[in-house]
């Protein structure tokens, strides 16, 4: 088997494993048009770096590549559109049905108040269903660091939900007082 044929076979095997999960990863974070662009660039990066891809953790590793391609893409968009402030603080464009189906606006708001890196950790954990050992290669962390940061992000999110609860209680009390 020639070298190029062997390389193609390895890439086909990788694509069968990661192509659909990477699409889902991107569609959770980008609109479909942007996701298609980033998918194309991500697959090209995987093709070029095929020799560097570890034999285990290939899906999380590919998420990590997609994440970096997406960051560059967003930066390029911002440069092009001159919408730095608006885009950079906005959470990713709400994908279809985000928060809508569950109607959990309280959790959506609490999540949006966290730092972008905490938000991404929590999404990888809950949406991609990754454990810290698999979150680590996506974010370029050690497993230990991913474990600690996930634990802190969960705590911050929990506290954010509690704070919101307290705020609403105070609001309700105030309104009740004003009504009475």
């Amino acid at each position: 088997m020639s070298e190029s044929s062997e390389r193609r076979d390895r890439f086909e095997e990788l694509a069968a494993l990661v192509y659909e999960p990477v699409q889902r990863y991107l569609l959770r974070r980008l609109n479909p048009e942007d996701a298609a662009d980033v998918l194309s660039e991500t697959m090209l990066t995987l093709w070029r770096r095929l020799d560097d891809i570890p034999s285990h953790n290939r899906v999380p590793w590919s998420y990590g590549v997609a994440r970096r391609v997406m960051a560059n893409y967003r930066r390029g968009q911002r440069r092009h559109l001159q919408l730095v402030e608006r885009l950079e603080r906005e959470p990713p464009p709400p994908p279809p049905g985000a928060g809508g189906e569950s109607g959990d606006t309280e959790l959506t708001a609490a999540l949006a108040r966290l730092s972008p890196s905490d938000q991404e950790l929590l999404r990888l954990w809950a949406w991609e269903g990754l454990e810290p050992r698999d979150i680590a290669p996506v974010l370029g962390l050690t497993t230990n660091a991913a474990t600690i940061r996930l634990s802190r992000a969960r705590k911050k999110l929990g506290e954010g939900l509690k704070d919101r609860g307290r705020f609403r209680t105070q609001e309700d009390t105030t309104q009740e007082g004003a009504a009475g």
Binding site: R24, R28, P95, E101, D104, L107, L111, A126, W127, G158
Partner: peptide, 13 residues
């Protein structure tokens, strides 16, 4: 918390 977050997943359905 994980379950509740998972319900926000736009790709879940």
């Amino acid at each position: 918390l994980r379950d509740r977050l998972a319900r926000l997943d736009p790709m879940r359905s």
